[in-house]
Design a protein around this nucleic acid. Structure first.
Lengths: 114, 114
DNA sequence: TCACTATATTCTGTTTGAGTAATATATGCC
DNA sequence: GGCATATATTACTCAAACAGAATATAGTGA
């Protein structure tokens, strides 16, 4: 029950859902997400922690960066199922559409390391 | 997006998940759920409203009683999918198991109309 | 119509959650 | 080592969510 609730709660927040939808397109670091979502860096980090804790997202350090990706769902069957559904869900959503369209223009080289 | 969030939020609360799992067993009125969950009647009513608003639950008046049931999922594809998953999810959950076991003993004739 | 009962709604206090700013941690480079 | 940068954590504020008590509504039966 607790694990189930964790996954549901994690996906009950628009910015977190957007993160999942973005990660379907490509690996991303925190600052890229921050730029895409237009919220502060600590806020992104907290959302990512919640998603990671629910078994929806994985992180791997790459030097100074931390790359986030969707999990394969091995940890939580609930996460696995929802990630599967979210592959096609919200594809028609206007807000998500605009976000994904902008993704190719958001590259860490242009954002960080100023 | 909004509809999706509504379904996720609705299923992010343990008592509401329990309501769904109970309704998989049988139609129930508010006072039966109140007895099963051990919370106040207004609380049950509010949870039911949230579930109904998300397209997870239907209600039909029967005189003084209001019978609640799971929807067929026609309203929301998200609700439909989650209700489908919840048919088998949490079947092994201890808390849910105990709740469901007690269901046959909870009949409105024994609870209401004192 | 009047009492009675099941459910819904309102009100209030408390908790949880999201946001930002400030600070801490960790990695890479000189 | 010392500095710069990407990310994490903490502290705090504000809004949303949940619980229960009290009240309102609607249906039933005398």
């Amino acid at each position: 029950m607790k694990d189930f609730i964790k996954v549901m709660k994690a996906l009950s927040e628009p910015n977190r859902v957007k993160i999942v939808k973005m990660l379907q397109q490509k690996l991303m670091c925190v600052c890229e997400m921050q730029a895409a979502l237009g919220i502060t860096q600590p806020s992104v980090s907290k959302h990512l922690k919640i998603l990671e804790d629910a078994g929806l997202v994985d992180s791997k350090k790459d030097g100074l960066w931390v790359n986030y990706d969707l999990t394969n769902g091995a940890v939580s069957p609930y996460a696995a199922a929802l990630l599967g559904n979210l592959r096609h869900w919200l594809e028609q959503d206007r807000e998500i559409g605009e976000l994904v369209e902008e993704l190719p223009n958001i590259r860490r080289e242009n954002i960080c390391k100023k």
